[in-house]
Computed example of a mutant assay.
Amino acid sequence: MTSVDLQDVSLQLNNKISSIKRSMQLKSMGNDPSLTKMLQKIGLELSGIRDMLDIFQMQILQQQTELKSLKDLRNSVQKNSEIAYHLLENTPAHLPRKAAQISTADSKDERVQEDPVKPEPTKNSAKPKHFVREIEYLLMEEFNHVPGYMKGRMTYDQINAVIQELNATVKAKYKILNQPLKSMTNTTRNQYHAFKEQETKETKDQYFFVETDLKDFTRLKVDKKLQGIFSILRHCHRLREVRGGHLVRYVLL
């Protein structure tokens, strides 16, 4: 056995002897009436320290819970901030607009209050413009609910861009239909009669267009991609088809 091992054994034995001596001293102190009060006081202080440590532990656990909640809140705020920034940078060019609706009774009251006496018509008075219905642009929520097999690689902005072209087609078509025949040129008059021939009982008082109208008034290509967009617009209740006479009429809803 080396000297180092003997030193370790000697140190361990000395430590044990010291522990035994300390235990004997404490035991003898317990039997000493003069030290009993001191030991009780020390016990009470130790008990108070233990209670204080328990309180500290509870406060630490509470602060850890609050810290976790603050971290979750920070992550949520950061995520919402990123979403808001993304929306700001990617605001669609076309947003749906809904015209304010006024009841018939209110409109009558306004006409009575604002203009109780109708002015006499003059020769230079402007004629009222004819209302032409438009297709409402898709909302992002609607686009997200379109099945994936319908959308393919088409984007939200692409579909709304097509809707803008369709609205321009309908506007141009019904501008001709609302013109007086006397003011038309021969070409416009021929278009007028062609539009009238497209009408059926199902399209009465409805706005619609056909593929020929797209070729006349827009640069849209009538291909599979456009037919896919028509399927999405039917799915989102923007259009419906009326077939007959070897012609497909796309009626606005």
Rank of each mutant, 00 (worst) to 15 (best):
T187C: 04
L88K: 15
L35V: 04
P119T: 00
N31R: 08
K27N: 11
T212A: 12
P121F: 01
V132T: 15
Q64W: 03
K68F: 02
V242T: 07
L166A: 02
L252E: 06
L138M: 04
Y174N: 04
Q62A: 15
E66N: 10
M150T: 03
Q206S: 12
A168R: 14
Q206W: 02
L11Q: 14
Q59W: 05
L13N: 06
G152V: 01
N14D: 10
H246N: 14
T185V: 03
T36M: 09
S23P: 03
L35G: 01
K221N: 09
Q179D: 10
G43K: 04
E89K: 15
D72A: 08
R219Q: 12
L6A: 14
L220Q: 02
E199T: 08
L61T: 08
D157Q: 08
Y207F: 15
P96T: 05
S10N: 10
K151S: 04
Q40W: 08
V248G: 00
V77K: 12
I20P: 02
A168Q: 10
N186L: 11
V251N: 05
F56V: 12
D205W: 07
D51W: 06
K98Q: 11
V117W: 05
E114T: 07
K108V: 09
S125T: 05
S47N: 14
Q101H: 09
R133N: 09
Y192N: 05
K151H: 04
T122Y: 07
S34E: 11
N167L: 02
Q62I: 06
K182E: 15
V248Q: 08
D106S: 12
L26Q: 13
E199K: 13
S19T: 11
Q101A: 09
C236Y: 01
A126I: 07
E165T: 00
S10W: 09
E199F: 02
Y250E: 03
H86G: 03
N124E: 12
K16Q: 13
D223F: 03
S69T: 05
T169E: 02
V112C: 07
L53R: 05
V242I: 15
K108H: 08
P119S: 01
E110K: 14
F217A: 01
E134S: 13
S28M: 07
V117P: 00
E165W: 01
R22M: 09
M140R: 15
L73M: 13
H86D: 13
G43M: 01
M29P: 04
I83V: 13
T122R: 15
Q64N: 12
P147Q: 03
I135G: 04
D51K: 15
C236E: 11
A105S: 13
K215W: 01
A84Q: 13
R97P: 03
G244H: 08
L39A: 04
E142S: 03
M184C: 05
D109I: 10
Y85I: 09
T2Q: 03
V251Y: 01
R153P: 02
D32N: 15
Q179Y: 09
M154R: 15
A105D: 11
Q64F: 03
V162P: 07
M1T: 07
R74E: 11
I176E: 00
I42A: 11
F143A: 00
L70S: 05
Q12N: 08
M150A: 06
A168C: 09
K21T: 10
H237P: 00
M52Q: 13
K37G: 01
K41H: 07
E82L: 14
